[in-house]
Amino acid sequence: MPGQAAELVFDEATKQYEGRDEAAVDHLSLTVRAGEICVLVGPSGGGKTTALRLVNRLIPLTSGDIRIDGTSILDQDVVRLRRGIGYVIQQVGLFPHMTVEANIGTVPRLYGRPRAWIRTRSAELLELVGLDSSYAKRYPAQLSGGERQRVGLARALAGNPPLMLMDEPFGAIDPIVRARLQDAFLALQKEVRKTVVFVTHDIDEAIKVGDRIAIFRRGGRLAQYDTPQAILERPADEFVAEFVGADRALKALALHTLAELDLGAPAGGPPCPRTSTVRDALALMLQMDAQKLAVTDERGVVVGSVTREQLLS
């Protein structure tokens, strides 16, 4: 089975659906570095899903090329290509007639892995996505939405693909569970280091999850492709500025945690864990009407302090 992360290159990739005037994806060129999460955001109908499905050839390219580790997707057997790419969609699409274990074992089974191997691998992956082994024998109908999404993620990882395609994987989930899934996903990514293309229409999710963000305009044209920081600080044009929102300065505060700041000496004030983002710390400060926060470590021990001025600078 495939292994580590792959580099993904869109090279003038274009999709023109039959009978439509405008291209859905228009001469898209961008490179996703190996091991990075690239988030595609943009207005509805902007061509994000199309761009994603071009990669695993669920949609055929009209012109241009897409390469994975230098090899054109057109030069590979389509079934082989797909088995090497993890695929997660918003509706999850777990197979309702298969247990969780069998769902996770989908791709290994296609590779002809033995039953015992698949069982072990399923158990490993369940743990990796934060579900305990009692879930293995359940059917998808017996899971909550968030649990299904975790199983969908485990299934996509089971073949150890160097590339993952995720189309609004957390889109249909309530904000609290979504935040938890995002954290779980980021923790997971630290471990597995896949190359990921992640579609969302939520700019906040893009900022949180992405190493790099590709902002699409209507007609599948790339408006800007850069790190979250750069996009928030230097939007390429009006469209991008408007898309990221008037509060982009505030959003930028969410890119840093207290741990990255030069903390003052331990002092009194409302406690705040140092893993909090600067934005959350500021919100807490305003809510508590405090000038200073006591910064705590993982065990709740106060390790420093931070002032309002410091957070705003």
Binding site: N56, L81, R82, R83, I89, F95, V107, L110
Partner: peptide, 14 residues
Amino acid sequence: PAEIVDVARGSGFT
């Protein structure tokens, strides 16, 4: 459901 067939094809089922 179409999305289930979609995932099957996308995962490399013939």
